[in-house]
């Protein structure tokens, strides 16, 4: 193992937050290529049989324990309380993650419901934050946080599948229309009004 890899391993070991490449370069005074090579070396070293793994998460690099060791780790340190996210919260989070920065109003228009309480709860959980406003007096615009990236194991902002991947196919969209038409007919039959 090279000296640089050893140094970076030590840095990642003591760092409480993921360290990004510029920080590693600054501390070690090395070129990007050297740092990358060292990171590759570290990843190989922690490839299979060790308790730690090198992960790119939340815009930086971190040494973290392997997923299968979670039970034993939690015996030392209480597991971080994972409050469950409701479907509404997850959908709102998805809207923010794909459209950020985005205002409450835009989220509400897309979701078709009032999103005030959901946005507030996401803010409270530190998953989204206020970003730059379009104008100083304009409405607040929200974006996802580093904590969001970490919690969802994402390497960086925009590390999401493209939204096109989730789009409905022609037949699926057609099925929605058919279902709507059906629902209308049922509603008409029940109320007796067209």
């Amino acid at each position: 193992m090279t000296e640089l890899a050893r140094a970076i391993e030590a840095l990642l070991f003591i760092a409480p937050e993921p360290l990004d490449q510029p920080t590693l370069m600054e501390i070690t005074d090395e070129s990007p290529a050297e740092v990358n090579r060292a990171l590759d070396e570290l990843r190989e070293r922690h490839a299979e049989s060790t308790g730690l793994e090198l992960a790119e998460v939340a815009g930086g690099w971190a040494l973290r324990t392997r997923a299968d060791l979670a039970p034993i780790c939690d015996r030392l340190r209480a597991r971080p309380r994972e409050d469950r996210l409701s479907p509404a919260a997850l959908e709102t989070l998805a809207v923010v993650a794909y459209l950020e920065p985005v205002t409450r109003r835009e989220i509400g228009r897309l979701r078709g419901v009032d999103v005030d309480s959901t946005v507030t709860s996401l803010l409270d959980r530190g998953l989204i934050e206020e970003g730059d406003r379009a104008q100083p007096s304009g409405p607040a615009r929200y974006q996802t946080t580093t904590h969001f990236l970490e919690r969802f194991g994402l390497a960086r902002r925009g590390d999401l599948p493209t939204l096109e991947r989730f789009e409905l196919t022609g037949p699926e969209a057609q099925a929605i229309r058919a279902r709507l038409q059906q629902a209308e007919l049922i509603a008409e039959a029940e109320t007796g009004e067209p």
């Binding site: 070991f13 003591i14 760092a15 409480p16 793994e53 992960a55 971190a62 040494l63 973290r64 324990t65 392997r66 997923a67 299968d68 060791l69 979670a70 780790c73 939690d74 340190r77 994972e82 996210l85 479907p87 997850l90 959908e91 989070l93 998805a94 809207v95 993650a97 794909y98 897309l110 979701r111 078709g112 970490e150 919690r151 969802f152 194991g153 994402l154 999401l160 599948p161 939204l163 096109e164 989730f166 789009e167 409905l168 699926e172 969209a173 929605i176 229309r177 709507l180």
Partner: peptide, 30 residues
């Protein structure tokens, strides 16, 4: 139906996020 079709990708993305959340629960950070 246009609105539902436009919103559907976000619903699917939410499912993806939920799975991702489950998968990311294992590792522990310093």
């Amino acid at each position: 139906s246009a609105r539902l079709v436009a919103y559907a990708p976000f619903q699917r993305a939410a499912h993806w996020l939920a799975e991702r959340l489950r998968a990311a629960q294992g590792p522990r950070y310093r």
